[in-house]
């Protein structure tokens, strides 16, 4: 760990929020696709209220890191990997994975995380309303008024009774954003949420997304290959440095940011 990284973190610590949400140290994940790929996270701290952008080309490990943060992918090793959505509710993610405590991870995921995928994150057999309400329903939270308010904010109020298949790609992404935020999660994780949209629409949705997240007081972690898209929004940028592993031909990706 270099001194430069520490200083950059110190700067970011001054960002709104403050409490440490994610703490990762020496987390590694090996994926055996093709020649092999290893993601290394020497140090990553994400604080509540931050807007973090994971920027890099496809195949650099953005999605792998997102999945690690979303607690759906088991890390191969970690010195520390914790998640603390609220004071006094600290989860040792690494230990939960070691103990194969999948149900606990699923519960924490359901309560604290919202996830927006590039496409196809909606269930095609549920109406827009039910898709948005699903996370609240799963948690047994009251749904009255919530869905409608969110839908109005995202400009999809007149589509609530439709099935996702009847909507345009852009409208579907709005629905996905609404669903990710419906249960007021501590973190919203988005994987290339605007990649399948034209630049103008992408910009609109990205702005709306950022506004909503800051209004709800959530933390946003977003992966994108489009550096420009996040330059204006006040994102903290996390980059990936790729190198060839010395011993074998696998690709080594180090997270820096």
């Amino acid at each position: 760990m270099s001194g430069g990284e520490v200083s950059s973190r110190a700067v970011l610590a001054a960002a709104p929020g403050g409490a440490v949400l994610y703490q990762l140290r020496e987390v590694t994940k090996r994926r055996s696709l093709g020649a092999g790929f290893v993601l290394q996270v020497p140090e990553l701290t994400i604080r509540a209220g931050e807007m973090v952008a994971l920027v890099g080309d496809s195949g650099c490990g953005k999605s792998t890191l997102l999945d690690l943060l979303a607690m759906v992918l088991r890390p191969d090793g970690a010195e520390a990997f914790t998640f603390q959505p609220a004071a006094g509710a600290r989860l040792d993610v690494w230990r939960a994975w070691q103990g194969n405590d999948q149900n606990r991870l699923a519960r924490v995921r359901g309560e604290n995380l919202g996830y927006v995928l590039q496409t196809g994150g909606l269930l095609p057999f549920l109406s827009v309303r039910d898709n948005i309400a699903l996370s609240r329903r799963l948690l047994g939270l009251p749904r009255q008024g919530w869905t409608e308010a969110l839908a109005k904010r995202l400009g999809i109020a007149n589509h609530l009774s439709k099935l996702p298949g009847q909507l345009s790609v852009g409208e579907r992404q709005r629905v996905a954003i609404a669903r990710a935020m419906a249960h007021q999660p501590a973190v919203v994780i988005a994987d290339e949420p605007t990649a399948s949209l034209d630049p103008i629409r992408a910009r609109q949705i990205m702005d709306l997304f950022a506004t909503l997240v800051s209004q709800y007081g959530a933390t946003l972690v977003l992966a994108t290959h489009d550096r420009q898209a996040v330059e204006h929004g006040g994102f903290r940028v996390v980059k990936f440095v790729l190198s060839q592993a010395p011993r074998d031909s696998s690709v080594l990706a180090r997270v820096e940011g």
Binding site: R107, E111, L122, L138
Partner: peptide, 15 residues
């Protein structure tokens, strides 16, 4: 598979 994966992401337990 994909929809079930989404459901897992939403916090549905495997069980």
């Amino acid at each position: 598979m994909r929809h079930l994966g989404v459901a897992r992401l939403l916090g549905f337990a495997t069980g």
